[in-house]
């Protein structure tokens, strides 16, 4: 583990840890969004999807452990690097006019703090069933955990939907800077590919933003019915 300690000690190494864990987390966020979109296919599709994940406990737990490790590493390296960065300029400028630094890049830390808080709430809501235990206990006709009903009933409450929609704004910004950023951190920078690399963050973040926001909005608009009639 000497290499890990060496990486954790240097600002460059911290960025490698941050980038690697960020890559895992953003990969998950994208896959998670596409998984969620199955709600548009009706209760049978998404409940079967959820059931199929539960039937592979080894894979599920391996994924959960990797995600948890990535999350902890991401938070730990973010806290350390932010400490070092803030210490590097004890006297602020009276006037600072950034030429190219984006709002997203400037708010990575605070955005991350908000996202961490949201993740805790999100897990309490849909994974542990703590915030709405009555929605969590539902089962469909085939005896499967009724994810569809849980999501629809949850998002029918405007405040719940609102909190999800609001949390997607820092996610949009975080991915916008983060996704393009890890290419640079991993040393991938070439004039031939830079336009694609720099566009990737905004594109990926926008897809995730629109995909995720569509679900609570569709529920509130009544486009995702529950109970489903005639099936």
């Amino acid at each position: 583990m000497t290499w890990f300690r060496a990486l954790f000690r240097s600002t460059v190494g911290l960025k490698w840890l941050m980038g690697t864990s960020g890559l895992v987390l953003s990969g998950f966020v994208v896959v998670h969004m596409f998984g969620n979109l199955q709600i548009y296919l009706g209760p049978d599709a998404i409940n079967a999807y959820a059931e199929s994940l539960r039937k592979m406990p080894l894979l599920l737990w391996a994924a959960r452990i990797v995600l948890l490790a990535a999350f902890l590493l991401h938070v730990l390296s973010a806290v350390r690097i932010t400490q070092l960065n803030r210490a590097a300029r004890p006297t602020p400028y009276e006037l600072w006019s950034p030429q190219v630094t984006t709002y997203a890049a400037r708010t990575m830390f605070m955005g991350g703090v908000i996202l961490a808080g949201f993740i805790v709430y999100h897990l309490a809501h849909f994974t542990f069933g703590l915030t709405h235990p009555d929605h969590f206990k539902l089962h469909d006709a085939k005896g499967r955990h009724d994810v569809y009903a849980m999501v629809v009933l949850g998002f029918r409450q405007p405040l719940v939907s609102l909190s999800y929609l609001l949390a997607m704004v820092p996610l949009l910004l975080h991915l916008q800077h983060g996704v393009s950023s890890f290419f640079q951190t991993f040393g991938l920078n070439h004039p031939r590919y830079n336009r694609i690399i720099r566009a990737l963050g905004p594109i990926v973040s926008l897809i995730v933003f629109l995909g995720n926001c569509s679900i609570p909005l569709a529920v509130l608009a009544g486009l995702i019915p529950y109970p489903v009639v005639g099936k």
Binding site: K15, A87, V100, A105
Partner: peptide, 22 residues
């Protein structure tokens, strides 16, 4: 050189590319 840079107390790179602009 990176070790010395860190020891001097410079911050880390967060890929904002402000350096290149100025």
């Amino acid at each position: 050189m990176v070790a010395q840079m860190d020891q001097e107390g410079f911050g880390g790179c967060t890929n904002t590319f402000e350096c290149e602009a100025v």
